[in-house]
């Protein structure tokens, strides 16, 4: 069942109302509204879409259609820290798979999710980053970590968490 109302805590979320007020003042459209939502929440929470859909009497599917068309919108919160795993052949052969699993395990990422529950980390993968000689390669917040091992991966996570987590 869809939840067309803002549920739980976010019911009392003033932020939506502020966004709504701004939207009405600016005479905005769906895109600018989504941009405002994303600015406030960091992504487009499902609840907010249904909430605005009701408030403005615009079908939720219109929001969803627009949000999935433009590359700028994220429908899931992205972590504060972005870990990118190289999935090129060399990295794969050198065992990036088990390391990715280990990282996902440490961050308690369920199947199909890319961002940890506390919102601190997002784990993504890319095609070959062209640094095969130091495979497996991971990129943590734009810094390249080469010759990764399971032990070093935990260290990397901890380091990033300490450095930026606060």
């Amino acid at each position: 069942m869809p939840q067309p109302v803002l549920k739980g805590e976010s019911m009392t979320d003033k932020r939506c109302e502020e966004v709504l007020e701004k939207h009405q003042k600016e005479k905005g459209n769906i895109i600018s509204l989504l941009q405002n939502i994303q600015e406030v929440f960091g992504y487009i929470p499902e609840d907010t879409v249904f909430w605005f859909s009701r408030e403005l009497n615009i079908p939720a599917s219109s929001f969803y259609g627009v949000a999935t068309f433009y590359a700028q919108f994220y429908l899931k919160p992205r972590g504060k820290n972005i870990i990118t795993a190289c999935c090129g052949t060399a990295c794969h052969v050198k065992g990036s798979g088990p390391i990715i699993n280990k990282i996902r395990e440490e961050l308690k990422l369920p199947e199909g999710e890319t961002t940890s529950k506390d919102g601190k980390f997002t784990v993504e993968s890319v095609a070959c980053v062209g640094a095969c000689s130091i495979a497996p390669v991971f990129i943590g917040n734009k810094k390249v970590f080469g010759k990764m091992t399971i032990e070093k991966a935990s260290e990397m996570l901890k380091g990033i968490d300490k450095g930026k987590g606060a």
Binding site: I30, I31, L34, G65, Y70, A71, F73
Partner: peptide, 22 residues
């Protein structure tokens, strides 16, 4: 814009200004 190359095309650009899928 919101990140879609196709919105450089004039009719898509118009759709985008109107708040629609470009």
């Amino acid at each position: 814009g919101a990140g879609a190359f196709i919105c450089g095309e004039e009719t898509a650009l118009i759709a985008s200004i109107e708040g629609k899928r470009g």
